[in-house]
């Protein structure tokens, strides 16, 4: 199959810098009154179907210090494994679940997303991928946003057949993408993200 050659080059990335909160979470950093709520701060509505969960963890640099200035975005399917359909600019109906969240890390590197457990999405050749959440991380010192995924440890069978996890040969590295479940009124899935070092998270070129 032939494809036209791209005619333009992608605009090069630059770091989000230390003041990323001004642009991405303005209310969080005290710039109030411009917009009502920071985009992606709340993912759930009363109409959202699926198991309520919290995904949380901390972000660390190569020296083990917390990355307190990171901003994380997640993107995920709904409980049925469907992504929210794109809407035209004139659409005015907010879906019950947009699937997109954005949170700043706290000063100790902690991030918290209150969301639902995603369903399985069809992968290559139609086989379902294991439930997962796509993650994008930016911060001072990150020259181009880092892409990864979070999987769920209690989905061992699905994880064992997952298209992406199975591309990671070293089982220790595979574990850097799998969050562990802690039971509670709202179950918590916990996974730390290491930008560098012995426990460096697997990041993607996709």
């Amino acid at each position: 199959m032939l494809h036209p050659t791209p005619t333009l080059k992608e605009t090069p990335s630059q770091t989000a810098g230390p003041y990323v909160h001004i642009g991405m979470t303005p209310n969080f950093c005290g710039i109030t009154g411009v917009i009502d709520a920071d985009p992606g701060a709340s993912m759930l509505t009363p109409d959202t179907k699926g198991e309520r969960i919290t995904i949380t963890g901390r972000v660390f640099d190569g020296s083990g210090a917390p990355v307190g200035d990171a901003v994380l975005e997640i993107w995920q399917a709904d409980a049925d494994g469907a992504y929210a359909a794109p809407m035209g600019p004139n659409s005015n109906s907010r879906p019950a679940f947009t699937g997109w969240g954005r949170q700043p890390a706290g000063s100790d590197g902690t991030f918290v997303f209150e969301t639902i457990k995603p369903g399985r999405v069809a992968g290559p050749d139609g086989r379902p991928m294991a439930p997962h959440v796509s993650v994008w991380i930016v911060a001072r010192g990150i020259n181009i946003g880092l892409q990864t995924r979070i999987y769920f440890a209690d989905e061992a069978e699905a994880n064992a057949g997952d298209h992406v996890l199975n591309k990671i040969m070293d089982p220790r590295r595979r574990e850097t993408l799998v969050a562990h479940r802690q039971e509670g009124a709202v179950p918590r899935y916990v996974l730390d993200i290491h930008l560098q070092g012995d426990r460096e998270t697997v990041f993607f070129d996709i």
Partner: peptide
Amino acid sequence: STLRAPRHSLLSFGPTRSEMAGPTFGH
């Protein structure tokens, strides 16, 4: 960038629906 740069190679795979879909803001 020194302590925030991954040292391992990035994992490559063909984009799946997870990467090809994206949030929209028409609402």
